[in-house]
Nucleic acid binder design. Structure first.
Length: 255
DNA sequence: ATGGCTTGAGTGTCAAGA
């Protein structure tokens, strides 16, 4: 089973790249973030044509998450239960017996900002809900744009980013709290190239200079981590015309 | 260097991203 996640930064703009990615990799599930549209602008027909089911939790202009899958998704959930949040950042479904959770975690803007407090609260709500969800679904994967670089080796210039947004200790503690639920960072199950990142700033030739951060992650519950045979970042779409600023992350699980 | 680029809104220019 192949699981993937990709912050596309507008699905309307990136649809050709997404269709290319589906044709190339044929993932069993692809989690998308920042669709930036309501259902009316969501390309259901093109995705069905490509052989994929699609469920969406969208809104105008900002945020928006979708789950694409070859098998029909069951028990679709939108938003964190019991957490009052107008921002559309979470969708989950059961696909081939795996509970797939797709999240677009808040950016936080700056340490100490109002959005930073929202970010930390959002992670607290996510972690609280996931505890029960993991008990109900031992085979669970949490994929998405976490907007957290978990360690210094996930940062191109750790000194410049020290205690800055995406890298601060409270954010890294929030990431650690997810691991403490019994989840494993699939990427770090394997030897990886140094300076592996999943996001590069559009400005200042960020990608060409590999000035990036690893903020997109696939966390796996224990049974899935045991079955995981590979986890990679696919930099190819970042080299296309008008790319997303994020690259997809892919995990391969044994059946 | 608080900039640099990209998107969506909406038609001039701003918010937001990370």
């Amino acid at each position: 089973m192949k699981l993937a996640t990709w912050n596309v930064n507008s699905l309307k703009v990136r649809l050709p790249h997404v269709l290319d990615f589906l044709a190339t990799h044929r993932p069993d599930a692809l989690c998308l973030q920042e669709t930036k549209t309501e259902d009316g602008g969501f390309p259901f027909a093109a995705l069905v044509e490509a052989g994929y089911h699609a469920v969406h939790n969208g809104q105008k202009t900002y945020n928006g998450v979708a789950l694409l899958s070859r098998a029909e998704p069951a028990d679709v959930l939108r938003d964190i239960p019991g957490y009052d949040d107008p921002q559309k950042r979470l969708i989950a479904a059961t696909i081939d017996g795996v509970r797939v959770v797709c999240g677009y975690m808040p950016n936080g803007q700056a340490v100490g900002a109002e959005k930073y407090a929202y970010k930390l609260g959002w992670f607290t709500a996510l972690t609280g809900w996931l505890q029960g969800e993991l008990a109900r679904h031992p085979r669970l994967a949490l994929l998405g744009d976490y907007n957290i670089a978990p360690e210094d080796r996930d940062v191109h210039d750790p000194d410049a980013w020290r205690e800055q947004i995406l890298c601060s200790t409270p954010e890294r503690d929030a990431f650690r709290a997810l691991l403490n639920l019994g989840l494993t960072d699939a990427f770090r199950l394997f030897e990886q190239p140094e300076k592996s990142y999943s996001w590069w700033d559009y400005r200042d030739l960020g990608f060409r200079r590999n000035k990036g951060l690893r903020i997109d992650h696939i966390l796996l519950s224990a049974p899935l981590a045991a079955a995981c045979g590979a986890c990679t970042i696919d930099k190819a779409p970042r080299k296309l015309e008008r790319p997303s600023d994020h690259a997809p992350v892919i995990a391969d699980l044994a059946p």
